[in-house]
């Protein structure tokens, strides 16, 4: 496991590279985290997936978008278009580190959507895509986040603050600023239309069902390239119902992702 910073001096990105073990080394996987509160909740599962893939013979890289996690930038400097570009930077970094010609992308929640958006820009650098509990429609996801924050019932927690334009506008959502820029960027995202442009074999795995995921399922099942949609009964890695599933890792999902990529 090699933690390191990459990217430019102005846009330092923190990543963890795990070289392929057990005689592998011909394939590489980039893991794309979710956003906001889902990032912290899912870090444990994403780290475990990275290690599993590495032990299975894949080079893996996971990294924090600018303005998130250990990467440079403050919370308000994070933005959707910038995160998409960060994924492109990470794809190129992983290719350089591993020596492969193309990488697979595993994206969780908004990371799935951003991964697909990045693959649209560099389709020749991507071979397969895994969508893990993907956000399908940005506008609906945004509303779900607002509703979730508005329904917080925790001792000591008051209503969300709204920010001035100097601070980027918008409001707090689950502990982080949802600036006007980020909200607009999320609203513009639509997974199925982007995915229809991509020729890559795609596997989607969902731990919760929704009508939007059924649209995604229909899209993937039309394809004859090995694409698939699967519903698995497991924990949502990105959402913590404390204390019921605190720290729980969705082992069935991780194993299924690894076996599909193999």
């Amino acid at each position: 496991m090699i933690p390191f910073y990459f990217g430019s001096r102005e846009r330092k990105l923190f990543g963890v590279f795990e070289p392929a073990q057990n005689g592998g080394a011909k394939r590489a996987v980039l893991l794309c985290y979710p956003w906001g509160y889902e990032y912290v909740n899912s870090h444990r599962s994403m780290a475990r997936l990275g290690t599993l893939l590495s032990h299975t013979g894949f080079h893996t890289l996971r990294f924090d978008y600018y303005g998130t996690g250990d990467s440079g930038g403050e919370d308000r400097e994070a933005d959707i278009e910038g995160s998409r570009r960060d994924i492109v930077t990470a794809i190129e970094e992983l290719i350089e580190l591993s020596g492969v010609e193309r990488v697979s992308i595993v994206g969780l929640r908004l990371g799935a959507m951003l991964g697909v958006a990045a693959a649209c820009e560099k389709p020749h650098l991507v071979d397969r895509i895994v969508l893990w509990d993907p956000v399908v429609e940005g506008g609906q996801y945004l509303q779900e986040l607002y509703n979730l924050d508005d329904s917080i019932s925790i001792p000591g927690v008051g209503p969300a603050s709204y920010f001035s334009e100097e601070l980027g506008g918008g409001r707090e959502v689950m502990g982080l600023p949802m600036t006007h820029s980020v909200a607009a960027g999320i609203s513009d995202l639509d997974l199925t239309s982007r995915l229809a442009q991509l020729p890559h074999a795609t596997y989607a795995v969902a731990t919760r069902s929704s009508h939007l995921q059924r649209q995604l399922q229909a899209l993937l099942e039309q394809r004859a390239d090995g694409s698939a949609f699967e519903r698995l009964d497991d924990h949502p890695a990105w959402h913590e119902e404390w204390p019921e599933n605190a720290g729980a890792i969705p082992v069935a999902v991780l194993n299924r992702i690894v076996s599909w990529l193999k």
């Binding site: 509160y37 912290v40 870090h43 998130t68 996690g69 250990d70 502990g175 720290g247």
Partner: peptide, 13 residues
């Protein structure tokens, strides 16, 4: 707890 070094809401960063 089991949260990594970044901390909830990135507060430790």
């Amino acid at each position: 707890g089991v949260a990594h070094r970044v901390g909830h809401h990135r507060k430790f960063v």
